[in-house]
């Protein structure tokens, strides 16, 4: 599904990703953990096509296509989704119209006609129930005045609407209380399927109690330095990252 080889990226003069390798097969859930400043969010941004970053080396293969050749819109339409760490507020644009434009963008890419109003509203109803997003939030401006939890639920709602092949969740657990965390995780779990993959970026092991990963990777200084199964996350929670810096890198 996704094959990242020797990926190097910088912002301005600062190199952040320094040769990152990661292969994700269909249906797999990978978690990436790591200390602050190790490059986790940079990886998410580079994959989604944020233009502030310069890719200075390596390749990203997405379903046998060169992901780095596509712009952000094309990546999304081809089935990549990024759940933002800080979802953006867009005053004056209703959530529902925003999503209809997104859904129709994808349909256009697939050679389909725009979705009919009634079908769209039924789809909204179905997907919103996944994350318990009520009608009030659907009609409001995108993320405007949403609480932290509502914003993250809205991200998962959008993901459900767009049914991506590969979803990157960038610190989706940050700012969530336990109830919201469970709702968000349930939404993600409901979408797990043999032909959909996830990359879950998180600081804390807690999210991985709810979204159980197949693999856990540790990112330090722009490289994956250690990989394992879900038990690795528990060990990190217990011992922190320092032992990796000492034992693995040294």
């Amino acid at each position: 599904m996704v094959n990242i080889k020797e990926l190097k990226a910088s912002i301005g003069e600062t190199q952040i990703l320094k040769g990152l390798n990661l292969e994700i097969k269909p249906g797999e859930v990978h978690a990436i953990m790591g200390p602050n400043g190790s490059g986790k969010s940079t990886l998410a941004s580079v994959l989604a096509g944020r233009e502030d970053y310069d890719v200075t080396g390596g390749s990203v293969d997405f379903e046998s296509r060169d992901l780095l050749e596509m712009d952000a819109t094309e990546r999304a339409r081809s089935g990549l989704f990024l759940a933002f760490q800080y979802p953006v507020e867009i005053p004056g644009v209703s959530n529902i119209n925003f999503m209809r434009a997104a859904v129709n963008g994808k349909r256009e890419h697939e050679g389909l006609d725009p979705i009919k109003g009634k079908d769209f509203l039924n789809l909204v109803k179905e997907k919103a129930s996944l994350v318990e997003l009520d009608g009030r939030l659907r009609n409001r401006s995108v993320n405007e005045g949403f609480s932290g939890g509502e914003k993250k639920r809205n991200e998962i709602f959008q993901m459900a609407m767009l049914e991506p092949r590969f979803a990157v969740l960038d610190e989706t657990d940050s700012g969530l209380d336990i109830d919201a965390l469970r709702i968000v995780a349930n939404g993600v779990n409901a979408m797990r399927s043999p032909d959909r993959s996830f990359l879950v970026i998180t600081h804390y092991q807690r999210l991985l109690d709810y979204i159980v990963p197949d693999f856990v990777h540790v990112l330090v200084d722009g490289k994956i330095v250690l990989s394992g199964d879900k038990d690795l996350a528990l060990k990190l929670e217990e011992k922190g990252y320092d032992w990796i810096k000492e034992d693995v890198i040294a």
Binding site: G49, A76, A101, A102, G105, Q158
Partner: peptide
């Protein structure tokens, strides 16, 4: 708002739209 523009594009909305 460049951030809003990128957010929309990351959802598959074309740049001009």
């Amino acid at each position: 708002d460049e951030e809003a523009l990128f957010y929309a594009r990351s959802r598959g909305i074309g740049e001009s739209e």
